[in-house]
Design a protein around this nucleic acid. Structure first.
Lengths: 201, 201, 201, 201
DNA sequence: TATGAATGAGATTTCATTCAT
DNA sequence: CATGAATGAAATCTCATTCAT
């Protein structure tokens, strides 16, 4: 295995480690040494792959976005957009233990980055969330529902809200309860009662 | 005005400054000097009132809880619990600019504190959120709706979700759009279609 | 009770508290607040009785010297100087638990003060020890023993040594064992074997 | 000379500097900057080698113990245990100027560390002293004297006592006088009067 | 590339001492 | 006299980043 390959493996290990540790400990409480240790890379070496700590944060964000892309790609195996959306909700509920411990990786990262004075990285966290919004809107649009963007907003908003509460209350059942409601909502959408959002009526 | 009075004023000034600055910059990026400056107090003096930085965070949390109590007290001037809840949603929407800039004070604090290994303060952030849940549940119960706790969870979860998204996307209209939906939902709740709760159909 | 009396009581309380706390925690690890608390005096008030922390240390030293004077006065009720010296040793052994916990009050104070660059207070600690040396020498002289100053040095040195070891090893039996030896030595002194010091032959 | 070698040299320089400065100024009055300056190392760099100040204290203690081991190793060139013990006493007397200025390095360290509430490091100071006790006891045992542990206690105790007094009185002749007595005592031990040990009779 | 070592800026915290009433 | 409040200097410790090999 030549240098080039080993190097890109190390980069990948560092990226994955950054995603894990930053999710668990938050950006500000994570040191480069933490990430290096988790990746099994000597601390001084990190700078050959990432010039600054912020670049590691960026890499973690792209890792989360990649996970998201994998998930949506898998969901697209279903032909029915409604099934895709329900699959998304089920995937969220499956992650309930992680959510209760650390919240949504992207959402909590967005919160931390939003506190920065210089608005550099927070835009990138927002972009990952917008990516999810866009995907959800596309599904709602495929269902020929009105205001698909608003429906997407409602869905993703509910996800971020339930993740935050599960985390703040350290209670994974928050995910289960809200998840069940979202599934009912998705099933009812476009039915006789009109498309007014979750729990409409 | 004697020493005693001035002193407790200073304590209050510090608490208010802590709440403001911690909301704006986050816990980890805020130094004691930041809070002292905002309060107009010499840095060394802060420790006369708060023995550690964590105590300032605690004070900020209690400040947020006090704000919440003020708000709910004002809402209780309405006799109708439904109006109270709608008033709550309107208050959230009124704060849309702040939410877009910094998110929900308590929610973002909970996210940051949740990243700590030592789980002391995050419980207190969770308690403030639970306080809001309890108040909302009481209103739903007064409306004789079934599963008032779940309804409260849905409502507060929606608030945290829309605040997080408004903040991550730097877009206050998220608050407006989701707020409008929540108002329609509250109006419809317990309506002609039976008391099935949110997401019914 | 008039002000004057109350004031001097407070001064005495502070002095006693200083002696106690400085012995237990050492000079450098003791704050004025510690002493004020122990004395039941408000912190800001201490400065009316002692202008600096060093003056409190000085007061503690004089307290220890006063204790020493009380002890020697009591010992002088014995007519026989040898009994007086043996009484002194017995008093030391009686304090074995304190010695194991905190060492000799004056000795440990002298060690700490000896570390100061400016040789101000260490001389005063030395003076208390010299006072004990002088008293012991007087007893040896009264016994018509040769080189009473050396005998005193041996005795006091043994005391400081056994206190330090009892403290360092956290073992009060050091006091018991060495104390027993010193008693045998005092008994033997001036006997047929000559006055060559403790354990001579 | 490569990095690795220079680094361990620096560590050694820091350890030696810590031993020197802590002996001279005491633990509490010594700052990390003092030690860094003495070692010719930038202050921020100290933490690369020692994570806390306490670790520097620990290193200083091990340095003192190493000195002690060197000394006893040299003494063991004498075949006669009595000569070894007399050599020890002579070494102490040779250090009289240092003792008068700063006391025994290990003894004064033990005193300071004994004042701490948290009893972690003081045990290590005690261990160094116990190490000396053990060595001395082994010599007395080799001389077939009864109660060698008590004899060792007497000897080491005398050393700590005379060091403390020399320091407190700023008088190196204390070491000379007590040292001479100890030499006579060692010579007489186990002599014509029977093996009753120190204080016999 | 790789890596242990180095660095310095900055954060939290402590406390003797002084002030104002 | 009394006292809560105030202050600033200094100490420990952390860490992102850079250096030298």
């Amino acid at each position: 295995m030549d240098r080039r390959v080993r190097a890109s493996q190390k980069r990948r290990r560092l990226t994955a480690a950054a995603a894990r540790v930053l999710h668990g400990q938050g950006v500000e409480r994570t040191t480069l040494a933490d990430i290096a240790r988790e990746a099994g890379v000597p601390a001084g070496n990190v700078y050959y792959y990432f010039k600054t700590k912020d670049e590691l944060v960026r890499a973690a964000l792209s890792e989360h976005r990649a996970h998201l892309d994998e998930l949506t790609a898998a969901l697209e195996e279903s032909a029915d957009p409604r099934d895709r959306l329900k699959g998304l909700v089920k995937a969220w509920v499956d992650q309930r233990e992680t959510a209760a411990r650390h919240g949504c990786p992207t959402g909590t990262l967005a919160v931390e980055l939003g506190k920065r004075a210089d608005g550099t990285l927070d835009a990138e966290a927002g972009a990952v969330i917008r990516h999810l919004l866009d995907w959800a809107a596309a599904q709602f649009r495929a269902l020929a529902l009105p205001a698909p963007d608003d429906l997407a907003l409602t869905l993703v908003s509910a996800y971020q809200g339930m993740s935050l509460l599960a985390n703040a209350l350290r209670d994974p059942t928050v995910m289960t309860r809200e998840g069940a409601r979202l599934l009912r909502w998705l099933d009812a959408l476009g039915g006789p009662d009109g498309p007014d959002g979750p729990g409409a009526r």
